[in-house]
C-alpha cells in the first residue's frame, strides 16, 4: 500500500516522535505532504452492482428484467379448451354431468373396514352389559327397602333423637345456657334486666 512505507512508528524513539510532531506543527510543506499522503491512501471504490440495477428506474426506462418479461412468448391455449367451450355453449348441464360420471370411482380403503369392525365390537360389548348392570341396581334397591333402610312417616317428632323443651323462664334452662345468655347480653346472667328481657322474648 502507498502508506505502508511510513505506516508504523516502530523504530522511532520517543524523542524522534516528539521531533516529528514538533516539526509538523512548524513546517507547512511537510504537513501538506502528510495530509495529502493520508488522504490519497484512501482506496478507490467501485460502484456497486446495485447502481446498475437502479439506473433504469431512475432514468424512467424499463429495466432489462422488464424487457425480458415483455419478450416472453405467450403459450397457445390447449386444444381441449375448444371442446369444453363448445360443450358449455351447447348443453352445459348434460356435459357437466357426463364429466362427473366419467370421474374415476374411488375404492374405500381397507382401514375403513377395520375401523368399522372395532367400533361395532365396542358397541356390542356395551349393549351386552347394560341389562346386567340394570338388574343388579334394581336388586340392590329392593334389598335396601326390605331391610328398612327407608321409613316413610308423617310424624317427625316420633323419630327425633332429642327432647324438645319449651321453658317459661330463664331459670328453666341449664346453667350453661344461662351463662351464654349473660355473655351475649354483655352482663351477668344474674342481672334482673337481662332476665326480664329474656323472659319477655321467650314469652
Amino acid at each position: 500500500m502507498a502508506w505502508k512505507g511510513f505506516s508504523s512508528g516502530e523504530g522511532l524513539s520517543d524523542q524522534d516522535r516528539l521531533a516529528v510532531r514538533t516539526h509538523l506543527t512548524r513546517c507547512g510543506e511537510c504537513r501538506e505532504w502528510v495530509r495529502a499522503r493520508i488522504l490519497a491512501s484512501l482506496p478507490r471504490l467501485s460502484a456497486p452492482p446495485e447502481l446498475d440495477e437502479r439506473l433504469p428506474t431512475e432514468c424512467g426506462l424499463a429495466s432489462s428484467s422488464v424487457l425480458a418479461l415483455q419478450a416472453l412468448t405467450g403459450y397457445p391455449a390447449p386444444s381441449v379448451l375448444d371442446r369444453l367451450v363448445a360443450e358449455e355453449l351447447e348443453e352445459p348441464a348434460l356435459h357437466r354431468t357426463n364429466r362427473f360420471t366419467d370421474l374415476e370411482k374411488m375404492r374405500a380403503p381397507d382401514q375403513l373396514e377395520l375401523a368399522l369392525e372395532h367400533s361395532l365390537q365396542r358397541s356390542a360389548l356395551v349393549r351386552r352389559w347394560i341389562p346386567v348392570f340394570g338388574a343388579l341396581a334394581a336388586a340392590s334397591l329392593l334389598v335396601w327397602f326390605t331391610a328398612g333402610g327407608y321409613t316413610p312417616s308423617g310424624n317427625h317428632d316420633a323419630v327425633r333423637p332429642f327432647e324438645v323443651v319449651r321453658p317459661k323462664t330463664i331459670q328453666a334452662f341449664s346453667p350453661w345456657i344461662q351463662a351464654n345468655f349473660g355473655a351475649l347480653a354483655g352482663s351477668s346472667p344474674r342481672s334482673s334486666r337481662v332476665d326480664r328481657t329474656l323472659q319477655e322474648e321467650i314469652r
Binding site: F6, S8, G9, E10, L12, R17, R21, L24, V34, I38
Partner: peptide, 8 residues
C-alpha cells in the same frame, strides 16, 4: 489518526 497510526 497520525499519532495513532504513524507515530505510535
Amino acid at each position: 489518526v497520525l499519532d495513532k497510526h504513524y507515530l505510535g
